[in-house]
Amino acid sequence: MRVGVVTFPGSLDDRDAARAVRIAGAESVALWHADPSLHEVDAVVLPGGFSYGDYLRCGAIARFAPVMESVIAAANDGLPVLGICNGFQVLCESHLLPGALIRNDHRKFVCKEQLLRVDNAATAWTTEYREGQEIVIPLKNGEGGYVADEHTLDELEAEGRVVVRYLNGNPNGSQRDIAGICNAAGNVVGLMPHPEHAVEALTGPGTDGLGFFLSLVGVLA
C-alpha cells in the first residue's frame, strides 16, 4: 500500500505526514510538486505548511503545480486524498472541496491542542473513529477560518459532509465550527487541525490523529 505525500516549496509537515503513514503500516512515497507523476500511489496526502510562501492566497499557486493536475484528476476518479491545513487550503482552491479558508477572526496565529468531534466516520479517512467521538489533535494556523455561502453550508450539513467540528470554543472564526469537510463521495477530506502531529505519545498530545491514517489503511486493505 503506497501513500504519496506531496512536497511543495514551503511545505513544512510533509515529513511528519510521511511518518504518520509509516506508523499506520503503509509505505510513504515522496511526491514532488513539479513532477506530474503520482508514481502509482493508492492515496495522497497534501501536507501543512506555506506552499509558495502563501503568495497571492494560501494554496492558490500550489493549485496550479504540475502534480496537482494529476491529483485533481485522480481525486475525481475516487483516489483518497487528505489535505491537512495548507493541504485543506489547496483542496479548496482546487475546487475539490467547497468554500475557502480566510484569516483567523482574532488576527492571531493559533497553536494549541484542539478538541474536536468526529461528525462523519464514514469517509475514507475516518472509519477508525465512531461518529460523535471526541479527539484532541494540534491546531496551528493563521488562516483557518472556514467560510462558504449559506447554501453550501446547508448542503454540507444535510449531506453529512462536515467531518470534524471544533468543540470548547471556536478557535478561528470558522462558520458553524467547521474544522474539516469532505467531498460528496467521501474520498477527499480536508481539515485545518493536524492529525499527523498526534500519532505518537512522545511527540504529540496523544495518538488521536493516527485514526485518519489507520482508516485509510483499513479502507484500502
Binding site: 480566510i102 484569516r103 483567523n104 477572526d105 482574532h106 488576527r107 477560518g145 467560510v147 472564526g173
Partner: peptide
C-alpha cells in the same frame, strides 16, 4: 477585494 459578507480582519486592524 473580499466580498462584502466576508470578514476582513486585516481591514479591522
Amino acid at each position: 477585494v473580499l466580498k462584502p459578507e466576508i470578514l476582513d480582519p486585516q481591514g479591522q486592524a
